[in-house]
């Protein structure tokens, strides 16, 4: 991009894809905005202008406040488990061990399992209070089995989602770990830093950028977690495990209220942007070289 001419040409060449992308984004967003101001229920053929009514109903819905809290807990909990667990696993996998290749593939494999399938496996094989493995283990120790989805529904979903995302975090962090020069670690060792201090002063700062990437990418996906909630708790008991995405689904498809669901969708977009701004402020500076 040296000369003015080449910059102009670059702009012209890029224009079609930029325009397509804009339309691609703008049309659904505009439609959602439009619907969110309509009285539009699938059970009622008459569509009328509603003003802010949809927003008013959605925001005053008793489930709304709780769904926001649940969404943030879900994102925060999964991030905490995957980042801490990911660093730990990456450190382990970075050690030269026999059968390293196979172990790495095993660690990555949860990422290849579809979310509903993973959730069903956890629900029926691991966490089921009657015949789940956790229940059997509890019984073996003479304990009362936990009814995971009734007693700690949100925590159960956090566990399942964290299990799915742990490989992603591990993989990114492992790659970053392997890019740390051996000489730097040796220099720190010669400088008298023991293993813990090498981790704090050398390894962790080196991983800062990778951790940022993990947090940003995972947050985008975690804000929209849906399948795991649907197949395990269905948002219940009560609204205990309903997040924002699930609340929008409930409004749209269980009450056939397209207008209300659209209002919820717009609110979800706004929330996602607030989280994004907050995150970029908090950790985004790690991405600057």
């Amino acid at each position: 991009m040296a000369t003015r001419e080449s910059r102009t040409i670059a702009r012209i060449m890029m224009a079609p894809s930029v325009i397509v992308l804009l339309i691609w984004m703008i049309v659904p967003l505009a439609l959602t905005l439009w619907f969110s101001f309509q009285n539009y229920n699938l059970l009622n053929p008459v569509v009328t202008f509603a003003g802010w009514l949809n927003y008013q109903f959605f925001l005053t819905d008793p489930a709304f406040a709780q769904s926001i809290v649940n969404t943030l807990l879900l994102v925060g909990g999964v991030l905490l488990i995957t980042v801490v667990g990911g660093i730990f696993l990456a450190l382990l996998l970075d050690q030269p061990i026999w059968g390293q290749g196979i172990v790495r593939i095993l660690v990555i494999s949860p990422f290849f399992i579809m979310p509903p399938v993973a959730a069903l496996i956890w629900k029926n094989m691991l966490m089921h209070p009657g015949y789940g493995i956790f229940a059997r283990i509890a019984e073996a120790f003479g304990q009362q089995p936990i009814d995971w989805f009734a007693q700690v529904p949100l925590f159960s979903i956090i566990l399942i989602v964290a299990w799915q995302w742990l490989p992603f975090a591990t993989l990114i962090l492992l790659t970053a770990l392997q890019s740390l020069s051996e000489e730097q670690k040796e220099a720190a060792e010669m400088d008298g830093a023991n293993a813990v201090r090498r981790f704090i002063y050398i390894i962790l700062p080196h991983l800062a950028r990778a951790i940022t990437v993990v947090i940003l990418i995972q947050t985008i996906f975690l804000l929209a977690i849906f399948a795991e909630v649907l197949v395990t708790t269905n948002g219940g008991p009560g609204y205990n495990s309903t997040n924002l995405a699930f609340l929008v689904y409930r409004t749209a498809l269980l009450s056939f209220d397209v207008g209300g669901a659209s209002a919820g969708g717009v609110i979800a977009v706004i929330l996602a942007n607030i989280v994004a701004i907050f995150l970029m402020r908090a950790v985004g500076r790690n991405l600057d070289a």
Partner: peptide, 20 residues
Amino acid sequence: RGPAHRGLAMVFQSYALYPH
């Protein structure tokens, strides 16, 4: 004895400075 306990200092070819 480990490298930390020999009281020697080393300068590496790549310098191995801590970039952060």
